[in-house]
């Protein structure tokens, strides 16, 4: 009788541990997929910004005939950002430079009241502003997903099995301060 209970207890414990293992594995897979999805979302927003910029340059070119340098800075920053490649650090630097160039363009456009009054300019400005926000929020969501995932694989008891199952820490999307290039705001008269 005692023997039977012992064996039943062992089997029950074994089943319990297996279920827990399966459950933990599934949860880690879900979190990791969320991180990957979030990163591709950031990618999508960055690409969306790339697509909006030529329209902005064309709209503005007719009004700001003397700001050739500013427009060229935007175009070249965009080209650089599009060819930055896969490593996250280089991309962050290029995209931050592009943000600076576009911001510079809007700052200069403040001095052209006819441009500001043009309705398609305000709409385009709103679209770009919104895209910047989308990038920021997509980064925020990516970082939150990364935080959840890293916490999940580091806390007990999952940390015991995470390494064995092939889950490694993910990197946050954070621009290092030193990497920011000097964006000189050139104000031409």
């Amino acid at each position: 009788m005692d023997n039977n209970i012992f064996i039943a207890g062992v089997i029950a414990a074994f089943i319990l541990v297996t279920v827990l293992l399966i459950w933990s594995y599934n949860r880690l897979v879900r979190l990791r997929n969320r991180v990957r999805n979030a990163w591709s979302d950031v990618d999508v927003q960055l690409k969306r910004r790339h697509d909006l910029i030529p329209g902005l340059v064309e709209t503005v070119r007719g009004y700001m005939t003397h700001e050739r340098q500013t427009l060229e800075a935007v175009t070249s920053a965009r080209a650089q950002a599009m060819t930055a490649g896969a490593p996250i650090a280089a991309r962050v630097v290029a995209e931050t430079a592009l943000s600076g160039a576009v911001g510079n363009l809007f700052a200069v456009a403040e001095r052209y009241p006819t441009l500001k009054a043009a309705s398609n300019f305000t709409l385009l400005q709103e679209q770009l502003n919104s895209t910047e926000n989308c990038i920021a929020f997509a980064r925020q969501f990516y970082n939150e997903s990364v935080m959840q995932y890293n916490t999940a694989i580091a806390t007990f008891p999952r940390n015991l099995i995470a390494g064995a199952m092939g889950f490694s820490r993910a990197a946050m999307f954070a621009a290092e301060a030193g990497d920011r290039p000097n964006v000189a705001v050139k104000v031409t008269n």
Partner: peptide, 22 residues
């Protein structure tokens, strides 16, 4: 109406918040 600034802002803000919330 996407040609009205305020309503365009509304659409954009909703999209931003949805991205932030996943």
């Amino acid at each position: 109406n996407r040609n009205d600034l305020k309503e365009l802002q509304l659409v954009n803000v909703i999209e931003e918040m949805a991205i932030a919330a996943g």
